[in-house]
Computed example of a mutant assay.
Amino acid sequence: MSWLSNVRNAIGGFVPGGKTQAPDTLWHKCKGCGTMVFNKELEENQFVCPNCDHHERIGPKERFAYLLDEGSTEVLAPPRAAEDPLKFRDSKRYADRLKTARASTGEQDAFVNARGTIHGQRVVIGVQDFAFMGGSMGQAVGEAFVQGVEAAIKDRAPFIVFTASGGARMQEGILSLMQMPRSTVAIQLLHDAGLPYIVVLTDPTSGGVMAAYAMLGDVQIAEPKATLAFTGRRVIENTIREKLPEDFQTSEYYLEHGLIDMVVHRRELRDRLATVIGYLCGERRAA
Results as ranks from 00 to 15, higher is better:
residue 120 G to R: 14
residue 119 H to V: 08
residue 147 Q to N: 02
residue 123 V to C: 04
residue 130 F to G: 04
residue 118 I to M: 11
residue 111 F to A: 05
residue 116 G to Q: 00
residue 127 V to E: 10
residue 99 K to G: 02
residue 120 G to D: 09
residue 118 I to Q: 07
residue 145 F to I: 00
residue 149 V to E: 01
residue 147 Q to I: 00
residue 96 D to G: 08
residue 81 A to C: 04
residue 85 P to R: 02
residue 84 D to A: 09
residue 118 I to K: 08
residue 128 Q to Y: 05
residue 121 Q to K: 13
residue 127 V to M: 08
residue 132 F to I: 00
residue 142 G to L: 00
residue 104 S to C: 04
residue 131 A to T: 12
residue 121 Q to I: 05
residue 112 V to P: 01
residue 138 G to M: 06
residue 151 A to G: 13
residue 142 G to C: 01
residue 146 V to Y: 01
residue 90 D to S: 11
residue 124 V to M: 05
residue 133 M to K: 12
residue 144 A to H: 04
residue 103 A to C: 06
residue 98 L to K: 12
residue 109 D to V: 03
residue 81 A to L: 00
residue 141 V to C: 00
residue 97 R to L: 14
residue 148 G to L: 12
residue 86 L to H: 11
residue 120 G to S: 08
residue 84 D to G: 06
residue 136 S to Q: 09
residue 148 G to R: 10
residue 112 V to H: 03
residue 137 M to C: 11
residue 98 L to S: 02
residue 108 Q to S: 14
residue 81 A to S: 15
residue 103 A to Q: 15
residue 81 A to V: 01
residue 140 A to P: 05
residue 152 A to N: 07
residue 88 F to N: 12
residue 96 D to W: 14
residue 141 V to M: 04
residue 104 S to K: 12
residue 133 M to L: 14
residue 104 S to V: 06
residue 134 G to W: 03
residue 96 D to F: 11
residue 147 Q to F: 00
residue 148 G to W: 09
residue 87 K to H: 11
residue 133 M to V: 14
residue 95 A to D: 12
residue 109 D to H: 13
residue 148 G to K: 08
residue 129 D to H: 12
residue 127 V to I: 13
residue 151 A to R: 12
residue 83 E to M: 13
residue 112 V to K: 03
residue 144 A to N: 02
residue 131 A to H: 15
residue 96 D to A: 10
residue 95 A to M: 11
residue 141 V to N: 02
residue 84 D to Q: 07
residue 135 G to C: 04
residue 88 F to Q: 11
residue 149 V to K: 01
residue 81 A to W: 02
residue 98 L to M: 12
residue 124 V to K: 05
residue 104 S to R: 09
residue 134 G to I: 00
residue 123 V to G: 06
residue 99 K to R: 11
residue 121 Q to R: 10
residue 141 V to S: 00
residue 111 F to S: 02
residue 105 T to L: 05
residue 124 V to T: 13
residue 116 G to H: 02
residue 95 A to T: 15
residue 90 D to R: 10
residue 129 D to S: 15
residue 137 M to P: 03
residue 88 F to Y: 10
residue 143 E to W: 02
residue 89 R to I: 12
residue 85 P to W: 00
residue 90 D to W: 12
residue 110 A to F: 02
residue 144 A to S: 14
residue 86 L to I: 15
residue 86 L to T: 14
residue 128 Q to K: 06
residue 87 K to G: 14
residue 84 D to H: 07
residue 118 I to D: 10
residue 96 D to H: 13
residue 106 G to C: 01
residue 86 L to P: 11
residue 112 V to G: 02
residue 83 E to S: 08
residue 102 R to G: 11
residue 114 A to V: 10
residue 84 D to P: 06
residue 104 S to F: 03
residue 139 Q to E: 15
residue 109 D to Y: 09
residue 111 F to E: 00
residue 90 D to C: 07
residue 140 A to V: 05
residue 115 R to D: 07
residue 129 D to G: 05
residue 113 N to V: 15
residue 105 T to E: 08
residue 128 Q to G: 09
residue 84 D to M: 07
residue 139 Q to T: 08
residue 106 G to L: 03
residue 117 T to F: 00
residue 102 R to Q: 15
residue 143 E to Y: 01
residue 152 A to T: 07
residue 151 A to S: 12
residue 134 G to E: 03
residue 105 T to D: 09
residue 146 V to T: 03
residue 114 A to C: 10
residue 112 V to N: 02
residue 100 T to W: 13
residue 104 S to Q: 09
residue 83 E to T: 04
residue 135 G to D: 00
residue 89 R to M: 09
residue 98 L to V: 15
residue 143 E to H: 01
residue 101 A to T: 01
residue 101 A to I: 03
